[in-house]
Simulated assay, not measured.
Amino acid sequence: MTEETPVLALRSLSVDYGIGRHRRRVVHGIDLEIRRGETVGLLGESGAGKSTLGRAVVGLTPVADGQILVEGEDVTRPSRRDRRRLARTVQMVFQDPYSSLNPAVPIGRLLAEPLLAAGVPGREARSRCVDLLRRVGLPAGTEQQYPGSFSGGQRQRIAIARALVCGPGLVVCDEPVSALDVSVQAQVLNLLRDLQEEYDIGYLFIGHDIDVVRFMSDRIAVLEGGELVEVGDTEQVVRQPGHACTRNLLAAAPSTDPEIRAERRRRRAEARAGR
């Protein structure tokens, strides 16, 4: 892989849902790139195909057409062996941290499993897990406890540690803070940014909260009906949206930014004056 090679490249990617006569296309011809150290925020209404696209990237949903390239390697239809290797390069953090963690398995074992499967010696795997748990802000002894012992914010920190334990180049974050209290959201978002800088990770950040996506993203991509309708630098998309879908999403979303609120009021007034 050269320095210019994206950690993720989607080429005309399409995904279908259902089988037989009930099969329908839910993601249509997506072209998108993400580089190490970059966050691309994925916005769209409910049902636009955001999570479906994210699951396709990590190999949880089959691809109907097009390509997925990870660090220049085609992983569109991976074999079982390729899937294990892909899991070390691309990981996902889900919306619900509890459902993504097996409640019957201690935290240390949950984190160590992929390392042991990759041939890392047991002592080194345990040491790496303990260090990573400390890095995400969890206390000593966390590795000996079970997921049910922790709050939602702590469980999401555990899920983030598990996603990073094999050193991936890309993490798909599927609304990773939407199930958390507002005060905890800020802590987890700052943690994700710090880890990105430290480990040079690319993020595909799926979200519905404009302020959260804006805070996290270098670029924003907007999906409508499974199609990519706008991609651009974050501030450009937020302040000067080029597509009606983006404008509607921004107009409908509450914002804590006074400049954005003022801009939305101005646009609504112009729209009324033009009727």
Score class of each variant (00 low, 15 high):
M1G: 15
E3I: 14
E3H: 14
E4H: 15
L8C: 01
A9Q: 15
R11Q: 14
S12I: 00
V15I: 13
V15P: 06
D16F: 08
G18A: 13
I19T: 15
I19R: 15
R24G: 12
I30F: 03
G37K: 06
T39R: 03
G41F: 03
L43M: 13
S46E: 08
S46N: 13
A48Q: 08
G49K: 01
G49V: 00
G49A: 04
K50T: 04
G54A: 11
A56N: 04
V57G: 08
V58M: 06
P62M: 02
V63Q: 09
V63R: 10
G66P: 01
G66W: 05
I68C: 07
V70D: 08
V70L: 15
G72A: 11
G72M: 11
D74A: 12
T76E: 09
P78D: 01
S79M: 09
R80F: 08
R81F: 09
R83K: 14
R85V: 05
L86R: 06
R88I: 01
R88C: 04
R88T: 13
M92D: 08
Y98H: 11
S100K: 07
I107Y: 04
A112E: 13
E113G: 08
P114D: 05
P121T: 09
R123C: 03
D131T: 14
D131Y: 09
L132S: 06
R134T: 13
R134Q: 14
G137S: 04
G137A: 01
G137F: 03
P139Y: 06
P139T: 06
P139F: 00
Q145M: 13
Q145R: 15
Y146T: 00
G153Q: 00
I160Y: 07
P168W: 02
G169M: 08
V172T: 02
D174S: 11
P176C: 05
V177D: 06
V188I: 13
N190G: 08
N190K: 05
L192A: 09
R193D: 14
D194C: 00
L195H: 02
E197G: 14
E198L: 12
Y199Q: 05
D200L: 12
I201F: 03
G202M: 09
Y203V: 10
L204R: 08
L204H: 11
F205H: 08
I220N: 00
V222R: 03
G225C: 07
G225L: 08
G226S: 02
E230F: 02
E230K: 05
V231F: 01
D233H: 14
T234Q: 09
V238K: 00
V238A: 07
R239S: 12
Q240W: 12
G242S: 09
C245T: 15
C245S: 13
T246P: 04
N248Y: 13
L249H: 03
A252P: 08
A252Q: 11
E259P: 07
R266A: 14
R266W: 07
R268V: 13
R268A: 15
E270G: 09
R272G: 05
G274N: 15
R275Q: 14
